[in-house]
C-alpha cells in the first residue's frame, strides 16, 4: 500500500516537473530569451568552478598540442618564408591602396571608423544538440562583454553575443537557425542574406537568378543590418542551384570557421554599439 502511494506520488511529481520544464521552454520562447534567468544563474554558478577544475586538463592539452605543433613547424617555416616574400610585395601594394583610400576619404569628408581594441575569450562549452549552434565563452559583463558584440577569429566571423552573465557569455553562431547576416559575394557583389540552418552549411538567400555566383566564391558581411560590420569573411560557396521556375538561386555556403575546433575568439562591439559610442563622444 505504502509502496503504491509512493509510486503514485513519484509519477505525480514527474508529471509536474515535465509540465514545469515545458513551461520554462514556452516562456523562454515567448519572450525570445532562450537562456532565461534560470539559465543565467546556472551559467554564473558553473563557469568559475569549470574554469578551476578544467585548468590542469586544458594546460596538459595545450602542452601536447604545442609539442605536435613544434614537430610540424620545421616544414612550415619554409612555406611561411615563401609566403612572407609574397606578402611583402602585397603589403607594398596595399600601402599604395591605403594612401589612395585616405585621399578619397578626405575628399568625401568621410569619418573613418574608430579603432576598436578587441577583447579575447576562451571557449568553455559548446552546444550539445544539433539544432542549436552556440558556444559559451569565459568572459562576461565584468570583462567588458556586452550583448550583440561581434565575435570573430582570424578565419572569419563567428556570430554575436546573445546572452551575458557577469563572468560568461553565450555566442549565437552564424550557423544557428536563428541567425541571419546581410552578406555579399566578394567577387560579383551579389547581395543576399546568409541564413544559418543549424547544419554544416548555411544558405545564402535572396540571390536573384541573374546574379553571378559560382562555387568557390567568398561570401563576406555587407555591413548592412545594423549589427555586423562589413568586410568580414563568412564562408565559401559550395553549391549553386537554379531552376527556371524559381525567382532566387539556391546557394549553400560553408563557413570558413571550423566551429567544432574553436578555442579562442575575439570580440568587438557590434555596429550599433560602435555608432552609439561615437555619438556619445566615447569613441577614440
Amino acid at each position: 500500500m505504502r509502496d503504491s502511494i509512493f509510486r503514485y506520488k513519484l509519477l505525480v511529481v514527474a508529471v509536474v516537473l515535465v509540465i514545469l520544464g515545458l513551461h520554462f521552454a514556452s516562456s523562454a520562447l515567448d519572450k525570445g530569451d532562450e537562456t532565461g534567468w534560470l539559465g543565467r544563474t546556472v551559467i554564473s554558478v558553473y563557469t568559475p568552478v569549470h574554469n578551476v577544475v578544467t585548468w590542469p586538463f586544458i594546460k596538459v592539452a595545450a602542452l601536447a598540442n604545442r609539442y605536435v605543433y613544434l614537430i610540424d613547424q620545421s616544414n612550415e617555416v619554409e612555406i611561411l618564408r615563401e609566403q612572407n616574400r609574397s606578402l611583402m610585395v602585397q603589403m607594398h601594394q596595399y600601402s599604395e591602396l591605403e594612401a589612395e583610400n585616405k585621399r578619397l576619404r578626405d575628399l568625401l569628408k568621410f569619418r573613418p571608423n574608430r579603432k576598436v581594441e578587441p577583447l579575447y575569450a576562451k571557449v568553455i562549452a559548446r552546444s550539445l544538440s544539433p539544432e542549436v549552434r552556440t558556444i559559451l565563452i569565459d568572459k562576461g559583463r565584468s570583462d567588458g562583454i556586452e550583448r550583440n558584440m561581434v565575435v570573430l577569429t582570424n578565419a572569419g566571423l563567428i556570430g554575436h553575443v546573445s546572452t551575458v552573465t557577469s563572468n560568461a557569455a553565450k555566442v549565437l553562431l552564424i550557423s544557428d537557425a536563428n541567425s541571419a547576416v546581410d552578406a555579399v559575394v566578394q567577387r560579383s557583389r551579389a547581395s543576399g542574406i546568409l541564413k544559418g540552418r543549424s547544419r554544416r552549411t548555411c544558405k545564402l538567400e535572396f540571390i536573384n537568378r541573374s546574379d553571378d555566383v559560382e562555387v568557390g566564391d567568398i561570401v563576406v558581411s555587407s555591413g548592412i543590418g545594423g549589427l555586423f560590420p562589413g568586410g568580414y569573411v563568412l564562408g565559401r560557396v559550395v553549391k549553386v542551384e537554379s531552376t527556371p521556375t524559381d525567382m532566387f538561386q539556391n546557394v549553400e555556403v560553408l563557413p570558413t570557421v571550423a566551429f567544432d575546433k574553436l578555442e579562442e575568439v575575439a570580440l568587438v562591439p557590434g555596429m550599433e554599439e560602435a555608432s552609439d559610442a561615437a555619438f556619445d563622444g566615447k569613441a577614440g
Partner: peptide, 12 residues
C-alpha cells in the same frame, strides 16, 4: 543552460 538549448527541453 550550458548547451544553449531552450531551458526545459533536456530537463523533460
Amino acid at each position: 543552460a550550458l548547451a544553449g538549448t531552450v531551458p526545459g527541453f533536456t530537463a523533460v
